[in-house]
């Protein structure tokens, strides 16, 4: 392994890292919004929309991100919309992630025991107060581990972005290997950058789980 070569490639990997982070987190932010909305709709069984969301969730959970990206990237221009690769990546990740986040949030909402609602109602709380102060905080606490797992999964999924010509970490590694054959150096850098990207999320996740420990035990 040639450290000098790795040092030379560092700036390009650094740029790719920032791009991956930018699009990855934009997609994750979108997935959280979609996931919350879909989970509320499903939890409250809002007519019509609830069925629609169920369809969306199954469609996106059961197709690969690569296929979804191809549809957005190559399909939309045929309908007259042009999308930049960045936007396409973020939206694709957001839609895929939304379907996973929806299920995480919904299982959290469904896991709060009904007796908690009775207890809040018996204190005179309105449905809204009960949801905001009693159900939602507990549901978030319960969902945290699976939401964190989703975030990590989604950040790793960004590695298919290269297929729509985004110069993410994977693209950069493959590109450099193809040009100069420094396979080991590039793969080591690739692994290091993914770890730098994901380790903080894992650690933060563990911290959050600890913080929410009380939300999951003993009433």
């Amino acid at each position: 392994m040639d450290l000098a070569v790795m040092g030379e490639y560092l700036p390009r990997f650094g740029e790719a890292f920032l791009l991956t982070l930018r699009i990855g987190w934009a997609g994750i932010a979108l997935s959280l919004l979609i996931g919350l909305a879909a989970a509320f709709i499903r939890h409250f069984k809002i007519p019509l929309l609830s069925g629609l969301m169920a369809g969306y969730i199954e469609l996106f959970r059961n197709t690969p991100l690569l296929v979804q990206l191809f549809f957005i990237y190559f399909g939309l221009p045929k309908l007259g919309f042009t999308v930049s690769p960045e936007l396409c990546g973020a939206v694709g990740l957001g839609l895929l992630g939304g379907s996973y986040m929806a299920e995480s949030f919904r299982s959290g909402l469904d896991a709060v025991p009904p007796a908690q609602s009775l207890s809040a109602l018996s204190l005179g709380m309105t449905r809204r107060q009960l949801f905001v102060h009693v159900v939602l905080p507990q549901a978030f606490a319960i969902s945290t581990p699976s939401v964190v797992a989703n975030v990590i999964f989604l950040l790793k999924e960004t590695s298919v972005f290269s297929a729509i010509s985004l110069m993410d970490l994977m693209f950069t590694a493959k590109d450099l290997i193809g040009l100069y054959y420094d396979t080991t150096e590039c793969l080591v850098l690739l692994v290091l950058f993914y770890i730098v990207m994901l380790l903080p999320v894992s650690l933060l996740g563990r911290k959050l789980e600890k913080k929410f420990e009380f939300g999951r035990s003993g009433t």
Binding site: A115, S122, M125, Q138, F214, G215
Partner: peptide
């Protein structure tokens, strides 16, 4: 009309003090 349940049903995400003050403050 106050009610106390067999299974307590305290709010697990709130401290004891906040369990007691939640309803007076919000309701």
């Amino acid at each position: 009309i106050g009610m106390v349940f067999q299974s307590y049903e305290l709010f697990p995400h709130k401290t004891i003090l906040k369990n007691i003050t939640l309803a007076p403050l919000k309701v």
